[in-house]
Design a protein around this nucleic acid. Structure first.
Length: 853
RNA sequence: GCCCCAGUGGCGGAAUGGUAGACGCGGCAGACUCAAAAUCUGUUGACCGCAAGGUCGUGUUGGUUCGAGUCCGACCUGGGGCACCA
């Protein structure tokens, strides 16, 4: 018996594809182009199961489209700048560049062992100057185009480490390493005007019809367009008023306070002369910058003592608070509070004993008695207690209130966006230097294009806190390009989303001297199918959409949208294990004991098995793909990734599931290498077949049609199920079936071609075993014979009052009256009708007959 | 807190509003074997029944429909995102 040798087979065909350059992409030709791209990985050191899933999905699409006759581009590279490299530098005393390059080399080998159909000649690493130099030029072009500006912005500041912290480095309001309370600090930073494209980014979402609905919704909410009113409240005893933004100008008569952000200029001003207030502002600033931290914190306010004058009610004033739930970045950093019709405002009002005045009541409610209890009234209704607005509905009242304010000259209708401009400055070393020089006399001076790239120096140390670029003597201090006097470089680097916002374009033509050639980008872009994790649903995808527009407006390329199709995969989960001492255990540290219970390997102690959760290092419920590939081969890992769950859902990694995939691969190999009858030669005419043989041949064509449809819709798990069904059908034929040799040849060839994109190494091996000299990767996708897709008889279900009572075998498209007559004649149907006459009979052709009595 | 998604056998899942549970995993029984592994065959939602067949069943609950896992409303549970992780 010729046992399937995975190691040898996989290595052999990987070498063969490589030798022949099967996956090198070239522009042009008569075939339609197809660009399939998976999100490139951060080179953390080893691939994890999430990568295996992501890249398997992409590879199936790439190989399938190639077989279907497309000119496919399928590249891979490395998102190589980022925080983990710096953390490794500090913890392990290894330079980020060395660490990153070694990780890339290791991960490239791992990816190559998966047999992925990449055009490796296009590989890029974003940490190399020949990559990032182009984005420095882009930044300068954006600057010329008016898409870049500088402003002060708040960051998490660790006062001990003297450094800016990422949100993930802030744990319970404290620095992860120092353990001291994090402060907010203002720093001058660079911003890209993504808000200039807000309307366009929103409008175009509707046309991204091959994106998941939920991703589009998340982006829509993120962009957060809202129409409302900007209104300036005058303050008693002060010249300057406070400008607020509201989406509910209809509730102005219910206003009972104003609230401004702790970072609002007015709050800053007042805090200078008020120690208590300054302490409160400082407390707010310790909260962290994330929206989650702000929204979940207890609502707190500080009464400034100032009174704001109500625009509509003569003599009415409301107190002005500084509140921890008002965001400086949204609207004007100030709101008016109407507790009756807003949840946060109500909570705040109850806490500080402020008025709750209902100004909208449900239709039919009595204005005299309608009152707000524990919950605000948020629905539409009729305006009450609101002077000229009384009796209007919410929409009418908004319009009327805005018009009145505009007449008074105190404000105007406006569109507000939740979307904020993209802050791209990072106070970090391991990133792309921002090509700017600060000169005492000339101010901000862009690095001249002839001086690009600004290369990130590698001779730095990590022993001092803060950004190493700040302590670098020669790199930081340079003459001003304009006046020649001593100046200093910008020491901030770009957000790493910068690199990932255009890498898809670079892949089209990773040439020297320019970011990409326009002709190549115009040929390949947009990406036809982009595949990656749902965790990138907003930021990366939105930044890339913005960046593509900005590049277009600077003349780099011709498309507006980078990704025409998007598939977001679910996460990989695994059971969790804890030993007797409560410590997490790796799956490799546990085994099934003799009694079927899970025990710790070696000690034999009982292990508590927890539910399946997202694989994470902290819970140790991770499985290393390298071990799986070494034991079972890449095809097994790939097949399991595809067969058990639809791609967008989470996938449970189980040893049993892997075993199942492994068994199936060996089963297919045996079917070809040890067939019950000799396999017929290539090209033999179809012999006379038995009814069972003919049914299998029909099933073969239905499988071609079904798998094709499944792959087009990314239903890979169903495609695998169909292929298994077909191979079960072939195996179920008795060994003496006439014409079996012909069926083996023709059914197996279909199975091999359909399964080829999923298990490419096995596919090539079987293709050769079946006597072909060419490669399966060059074979065309099979086409079904339409005549074999329809059956002449159909089994139709018969119901009485919606309950299944029997089945009927009927000719295809039989006349309704015949179906009805046959259904009523069934003994079981008669029994269920209990002698009653049918009131109505519903006949759905070729599907169901329902008798209603 | 806000936004989004998902709940179907012991498990992963399948099902254009039309026979719920395809396919796989696991279990059980059997064949092969000195034995084991591998492989093959049968069986497998629950309950009642010798059987034919029947009753129940897609997180909970109400509705629309001849017919609901699928559509609508309310709720429960789990998961993801929330702008310096990538």
């Amino acid at each position: 018996m010729s046992r399937y040798n995975v190691k040898e087979t996989e290595a052999r065909w990987q070498a063969e594809w490589d030798k022949r350059g099967c996956f090198a992409a070239r522009e042009g030709g008569t075939k339609p182009k197809y660009y399939v791209l998976e999100m490139f990985p951060y080179p953390s050191g080893r691939i994890h199961m999430g990568h295996v899933r992501n890249y398997t999905l992409g590879d199936v699409v790439a190989r399938y489209k190639r077989a279907k006759g497309f000119n496919v581009l399928h590249p891979m590279g490395w998102d190589a700048f980022g925080l983990p490299a710096e953390n490794a530098a500090i913890q392990n005393k290894v330079h980020p560049a060395k660490w990153t390059r070694e990780n890339i080399a290791a991960m490239r080998d791992q990816l190559k062992s998966m047999g992925l159909s990449y055009d490796w000649s296009r590989e890029v690493a974003t940490c190399e100057p020949d990559y990032y130099r182009h984005e420095q030029k882009m930044f300068l072009d954006f600057l010329k185009q008016g898409l870049v500006y500088r402003k002060e912005s708040w960051v998490n500041w660790d006062p001990v480490e003297n450094t800016v912290l990422a949100n993930e480095q802030v744990i319970d309001g404290k620095g992860w390493r120092s353990g001291v309370a994090v402060e907010k600090r203002l720093l001058a930073q660079w911003f890209l005007k993504i808000t200039a494209y807000a309307q366009d980014l929103l409008d175009e979402l509707d046309r991204l019809d091959r994106w998941p609905e939920r991703v589009r919704l998340m982006q829509e909410n993120w962009i957060g367009r809202s129409e409302g009113l900007r209104l300036t409240f005058a303050l008693e005893g002060r010249d300057q008023g406070v400008e607020i933004f509201t989406t509910r100008p209809d509730t102005l008569f219910g206003a009972s306070f104003l609230a401004i952000a702790a970072n609002h200029p007015l709050a800053q001003e007042l805090a200078r002369n008020d120690a208590l207030l300054a302490a409160f502002v400082a407390e707010c600033n310790r909260m962290g910058t994330s929206e989650e931290a702000i929204e979940t914190a207890e609502k707190k306010g500080f009464d400034t003592g100032l009174k704001a004058i109500h625009p509509f009610i003569a003599g009415r004033t409301v107190p002005v608070y500084i509140a921890n739930f008002v965001l400086m970045d949204y609207g004007t950093g100030a709101i008016f509070g109407c507790p009756a019709h807003d949840e946060r405002d109500l909570e705040f009002a109850r806490q500080y004993g402020l008025d709750v005045i209902a100004v909208v009541a449900p239709a039919g409610a009595d204005p005299a008695t309608f009152a707000i209890g524990d919950t605000p009234y948020l629905d539409d209704g009729r305006l009450i207690h609101s002077d000229f607005l009384n009796g209007l509905n919410v929409a009418q009242a908004k319009k009327a209130a805005i018009e009145r304010i505009e007449q008074m000259g105190q404000g105007h209708r406006t569109v507000n966006w939740r979307l904020r401009d993209w802050g791209v400055s990072r106070q970090r070393y391991w990133g792309c230097p921002i090509p700017i020089i600060h000169c005492a006399s000339c101010g901000i001076v862009p690095v001249p294009e002839k001086d690009l790239p600004v290369v990130l120096p590698e001779d730095v140390g990590f022993d001092k806190p803060g950004n190493p670029l700040d302590h670098h003597p020669s790199w930081k201090n340079v003459p001003c390009p304009t006046c020649g006097k001593p100046a200093r470089r910008e020491t901030d680097t770009f957000d790493t989303f910068f690199e990932s916002s255009w890498y898809f374009a670079r892949f089209c033509a990773p040439v020297e001297g320019q970011a990409f050639t326009k002709s190549a980008v115009d040929y390949w872009m947009p990406v036809d199918q982009y595949i990656g994790g749902i965790e990138h649903a907003i930021l990366h995808l939105l930044y890339s959409r913005f960046f593509t527009r900005a590049l277009k407006d600077c003349g780099y390329l011709s498309v507006r949208e980078p990704f025409a199709g998007l598939l977001t995969q679910g996460m990989i989960c695994h059971e969790t294990y804890r030993g007797a001492d409560g410590a997490w255990l790796f799956p490799t540290e546990v085994e099934k004991g003799a009694d079927g219970r899970t025990v710790q390997t070696g000690s034999g102690q009982a292990v508590a098995v927890g539910r399946s959760e997202k694989m994470s290092k902290s819970k140790k419920n991770v499985v290393d793909p390298e071990g799986i590939i070494a034991t079972y081969g890449a095809d097994t890992a790939r097949l399991f990734m595809l067969s058990d769950s639809p791609p967008e859902r989470d996938l449970d990694w189980t040893e049993a599931g892997v075993e199942g995939a492994w068994r199936y691969i060996n089963r297919l190999w045996r079917m070809a290498s040890e067939p019950p009858q000799p396999i017929a030669a290539i090209g033999q005419p179809m012999p006379d077949l038995t009814p069972a043989g003919l049914a299998l041949w029909r099933l073969t064509h239905k499988t071609i049609a079904g798998v094709t449809d499944d792959l087009d819709r990314f239903h890979f798990n169903k495609a695998v199920a169909r292929i298994r069904e077909l191979s079960n059908g072939l195996a179920d034929l008795p060994p003496d079936t006439p014409g079996l040799g012909w069926l083996e040849r023709n059914v197996l060839e279909v199975i091999v071609r359909l399964a080829g994109p999923m298990v490419p190494h096995l596919g090539e091996a079987l293709w050769r075993e079946l006597g072909h000299d060419d490669l399966l990767v060059d074979a065309a996708w099979p086409l079904p014979d339409p005549a074999l897709l329809v059956d002449d008889t159909i089994v139709v279900a018969v119901q009485v009052n919606g309950k299944l009572r029997g089945e009927l075998s009927l000719p295809l498209d039989v006349d309704k009256t015949i179906a009805e007559r046959e259904a009523l004649a069934l003994a079981n149907v008669q029994a269920a009708m209990a002698g009653k006459a049918p009131k109505r009979v519903i006949v759905v052709p070729n599907r169901i007959v329902n008798v209603v009595v």
